[in-house]
């Protein structure tokens, strides 16, 4: 078999192709490793033991402690959305649609996506930094020597807690976002309070809310999975942990946006 040609002999084009090829292979290998990690996590989820205490602690940490940031994000987003829709709607005398568009926009799209992104910033970074530090200080090896599987003890409780807690956060965020729109509508845009709320409720369908909660569960899974993956595979030292943290937040954020598009296609175009 003849040897592969030296890309340098092909000039700049060859070098560029080699670089693109390596990057593509590297990206595919990373995706494969994450998929295997996800499969292993799901495998451990359905096999005992299950660490309830760690799960409870993570529900508090991921769900309860994220409430302020998700709530404030939703409040300001709902308010801004009301102003934008009012301003845009005024161009064709459609100011009255503010309550329904704010509600649909929040529960279908902005609630889950912005909630997911805020949780990604807060939780994926925290998980990756914590597990990365545990790895470089040999705490994960110590768990293994103490007959405790790190996947079961560290990863499964975090992934399950995030998958269950983020939809709840999204639901609460939806309500707060709608209230933000109502507050602005009533105080700044001269809407009647009762009419605003009636329009909100009348135009919302169950699936509008349900689809957002399903998205929330998917985003929670993505956030915790990528936080755990990058933490468990952290490099050595402070630099390794820093890189793992950054990678977790970036990967989780991008994947949330990509998953949001795919889920929207599945839920609303068929």
């Amino acid at each position: 078999m003849s040897a592969a040609p030296d890309p340098r002999s092909l000039g700049h084009l060859g070098l560029a192709l080699r670089s693109i090829g390596r990057s593509t292979l590297g990206a595919l290998a990373s995706i494969g490793r994450v998929v295997l990690f996800a499969a292993a996590t799901l495998g451990h989820l359905v096999r005992p033991p299950f660490y309830w205490r760690e799960f409870g602690a993570q529900v508090l940490q991921i769900g309860w402690c994220s409430l302020p940031v998700v709530g404030l994000t939703a409040l300001f987003t709902g308010g801004a959305l009301a102003l934008q829709i009012y301003s845009g709607g005024a161009r064709f005398n459609a100011e009255a649609v503010v309550p329904s568009i704010v509600a649909i926009g929040m529960v279908r799209e902005l609630g889950p996506v912005l909630g997911g992104l805020m949780v990604a910033a807060r939780v994926a970074s925290s998980i990756a930094a914590e597990l990365g530090t545990m790895k470089v200080t040999e705490q994960i090896d110590a768990l293994t020597t103490l007959s405790t599987n790190p996947m079961k003890y560290l990863v499964v409780p975090r992934v399950l807690a995030a998958t269950l807690a983020v939809p709840v956060l999204v639901g609460v965020g939806d309500a707060i976002g709608i209230m933000g729109g109502w507050l602005v509508g009533v105080t700044r845009l001269d809407f009647n309070s009762v009419t605003y709320l009636k329009n909100t409720i009348d135009f919302l369908e169950v699936w509008d809310v349900g689809s957002g909660l399903v998205k929330g569960a998917a985003f929670g899974f993505i956030v915790a999975l990528l936080g755990c993956y990058h933490g468990m595979n952290s490099g050595r030292g402070a630099q390794g942990v820093g890189k793992a943290t950054k990678s977790a937040v970036v990967a989780a954020s991008v994947l949330i946006l990509a998953a949001n598009y795919l889920l929207t296609e599945v839920f609303f175009t068929s």
Binding site: T137, Q139, D141, A142, T145, S147
Partner: peptide, 20 residues
């Protein structure tokens, strides 16, 4: 068998590796 094997061991890590 992994658990039975590890149950026979104890280990002191270089940095202690205590759970924070």
């Amino acid at each position: 068998e992994r658990d039975a094997f590890l149950a026979r061991f104890g280990m002191l890590f270089q940095g202690g590796a205590l759970f924070d």
